[in-house]
């Protein structure tokens, strides 16, 4: 199931020209506030009619100027930034609200209750729920409208850090257990890294890039859009063995790496996040270093303060100063060693 989006819409002060495809999995719409993310989700859900364009979910045209399906007919579950629960209904009545119009909803009720642990909340009114509980209820209600696509517009933005941490595992469960394409709007890099498989970068009403998350993270031109501190690659690794001292040996396309003690079974796929400022480059094979992970790489391109390195089939980034570039005589094709100071691990 692919969502195809292409539309133009003019606001005073902002002209939007948005086009991207969202394949299966979680597609994150990422960009600064005011760049048009919520407008885009509203257009997709049918809450805002664009000046022109075409929105389609696989073969089903939702909008193309001639066709303009009402929000009711689009089968898009929408989780808003504010939970928008009906204040005069209990949690249970909120959850059952869509079932009058969606046959499948009654069948899924128990599963959704179980998935989001909503059982103890059913008889409560929204005013008595915490922010996290409200958002969980809103997610459940959207799921029970039997959607073909789930749109989440910064569902965690209104929550504090501990509530975010409380909701995040539910979102991961959703992604892994309910095979539903999800469009996830965010301006938080940690959320995008944990959830997304595809990344759509937006800036001032335009899509500047759309593609697999790991491609964007390893692209020295695009990575800075996520913020200088966040630049760095995401590479796949498979757990191979546990060493005698407890370190975990993993295989990457650039060679084996060692990770500190981590509770992961042999064969498990992991995503390794290697930040650009945690990577040091050396022309010669270094000796006598405390760093454990030293990978042979080749320079692919240099942009600004970032060097893109080839690591087998994958790419990673290193942050260097112009003086280092000159001292090491780095240019595309240069072979060098990447010394990785630290790695963080995300479940694949």
């Amino acid at each position: 199931m692919t969502l195809s989006v292409a539309f133009r819409h003019g606001f005073p002060g902002l002209d939007l020209d948005i086009r991207f495809d969202a394949p299966e999995g979680v597609t994150a719409l990422f960009g600064p506030s005011g760049c048009g993310k919520s407008t885009t989700t509203n257009v997709i859900a049918g809450l805002l009619r664009p000046d022109s364009g075409r929105i389609a979910l696989q073969d089903r045209v939702l909008f193309d100027g001639r066709t303009d399906l009402a929000p009711q007919a689009r089968r898009i579950g929408y989780v808003f930034q504010d939970p928008r629960l009906f204040p005069h209904m209990t949690v249970e009545r909120n959850l059952r609200y869509p079932s009058r119009w969606h046959r499948g909803a009654a069948r899924d009720f128990d599963r959704v209750i179980e998935l989001l642990a909503l059982g103890p909340l059913l008889s409560r009114y929204p005013a008595t729920l915490s922010g996290g509980e409200k958002q969980r209820t809103a997610i459940g209600r959207a799921l029970l409208s039997d959607p073909a696509l789930l749109v989440m517009d910064e569902p965690l933005a209104a929550l504090d850090e501990s509530r975010k941490a409380e909701i995040m595992p539910w979102l991961e469960r959703l992604r892994d257990e309910i095979r539903l394409p999800i469009l996830y709007v965010s301006h938080s890099v940690p959320e995008v890294l944990r959830l997304a498989t595809t990344l759509v970068l937006m800036h001032a009403g335009r899509v500047t890039h759309a593609g697999p998350l790991s491609d964007v993270l390893a692209d020295p031109q695009l990575a800075p859009q996520l913020g200088a501190r966040e630049a760095g690659a995401l590479i796949m690794a498979r757990v191979e063995a546990r060493e005698a001292d407890g370190m975990l040996r993993v295989a990457t396309s650039g060679g084996p790496m060692l990770l500190p003690d981590l509770d992961a079974p042999i064969g498990r796929l992991l995503r390794l996040r290697i930040l650009a400022h945690e990577v040091i480059l050396s022309r010669d094979a270094p000796h006598g270093l405390s760093a454990l992970n030293i990978l042979p790489t080749t320079v692919l391109q240099l942009t600004g303060g970032l060097v893109q390195l080839g690591l087998g089939r994958e790419r990673m980034l290193a942050q260097v100063t112009p003086r280092s570039v000159a001292a090491l005589d780095l240019r595309p094709g240069t072979a060098c060693f990447a010394i990785v100071k630290s790695v963080s691990v995300l479940p694949a």
């Binding site: 859900a45 929000p71 009711q72 869509p98 119009w101």
Partner: peptide, 11 residues
Amino acid sequence: KLEQAAATLGA
């Protein structure tokens, strides 16, 4: 916004 939410739920 509550009415919008109800519309996306199919009502």
